[in-house]
């Protein structure tokens, strides 16, 4: 049996075990993978041109030809949801990756050096924390104009303190344990202590925070588009679509808002479920 076969068999076994024990996680994985596929191939999968108007009737309910129905300009909602996946997902990914890296670096630096460095870092953390993420994003829009780039970067900064606080507290706790003192006495280099021992200890917490952060970032960015400050119509961003569907909603055609809303909720739900479960596994492994 080759190594690949062995690994393949093991993966299959794990999947089988997980599927029987934890159908919720499997469902979450399916959603996350599905959304990822939509983000990459959405444009290609779309049955119609997402921006073309009057490809069908106006505000039609779902049918075989238009599975999600059409909007008030006769655009195909499925095509627009598919095309809107990438812009709706990339922003949150940038936010969590940037804020996790920055926050972890800041938190570890503060805990590692302590004293004045910790004091300054903590003050920076408090300061950013005091400005709500949405406010920072709106301020960015007022400065740089409408669009998703400025709010995305603003949120990336706004999310730093949450990660930094968590990592700082975790790192302080870890550094206080005798095994860190033992490594120090042994003469293990600082970089090795940091990257071989401290960082792995913090990864489960960081991962959990990253998944939670992804959900919040997605909601915040969609909210900014919903407010009309992010992606601009006729773009097929999910938040824009939800906002744009409001008149149709009151007129009795909920599809235009509901389908993108459903995808926002499903994506966030799936990522949250996955994050929570992986955290539990990691914690169990620790004990």
């Amino acid at each position: 049996m080759s190594v690949a076969q062995l690994a393949g068999g093991r993966v299959a076994a794990v999947v089988r075990k997980a599927a029987t024990r934890d159908p919720l996680v499997i469902a979450a994985v399916v959603v996350v993978v599905g959304v990822a596929v939509m983000a990459v191939f959405g444009q290609a999968l779309a049955p119609y041109d997402p921006d073309a108007i009057y490809v069908g009737p106006v505000s039609a309910p779902p049918s075989l030809a238009y599975p999600f129905g059409t909007d008030d300009l006769g655009r195909d909602i499925l095509s627009r949801v598919l095309a809107g996946t990438a812009p709706s997902v990339i922003g949150p990914v940038i936010v969590v990756v940037a804020s996790s890296l920055l926050g972890a670096a800041l938190g570890i630096t503060a805990a590692w050096f302590g004293g004045a460095v910790d004091g300054i870092a903590s003050r920076v953390i408090e300061l950013i924390f005091a400005i709500p993420g949405l406010v920072l994003a709106v301020l960015a829009v007022a400065m740089f104009g409408k669009g998703l780039l400025a709010p995305t970067l603003a949120l990336a900064i706004a999310y730093v303190p949450i990660v930094a606080r968590l990592i700082r507290a975790g790192a302080r706790q870890e550094l206080g344990k005798p095994y860190m003192a033992a490594l120090h006495i042994q003469g293990v280099g600082s970089a090795a202590i940091c990257f071989r021992h401290l960082v792995p200890a913090l990864l489960p917490a960081l991962f959990a925070q990253t998944t939670i952060g992804f959900g919040y970032a997605m909601l915040d960015l969609a909210a900014i588009s919903f407010l009309g400050l992010g992606a601009q119509p006729p773009a097929s961003d999910w938040g824009v679509m939800i906002a744009g569907g409001q008149p149709a909603l009151i007129a009795g055609a909920p599809e235009q808002s509901m389908f993108p809303a459903l995808f926002v909720v499903l994506t966030v739900l799936a990522v949250n479920v996955l994050g929570a479960r992986v955290t539990t596994w990691a914690e169990r492994g620790e004990r």
């Binding site: 909210a223 919903f226 906002a243 909920p254 966030v268």
Partner: peptide, 14 residues
């Protein structure tokens, strides 16, 4: 936790 304000809002409006 996955229900943002704008989604709840449109549901309620509907």
């Amino acid at each position: 936790m996955a229900m943002p304000t704008f989604v709840v809002a449109i549901l309620l409006i509907w």
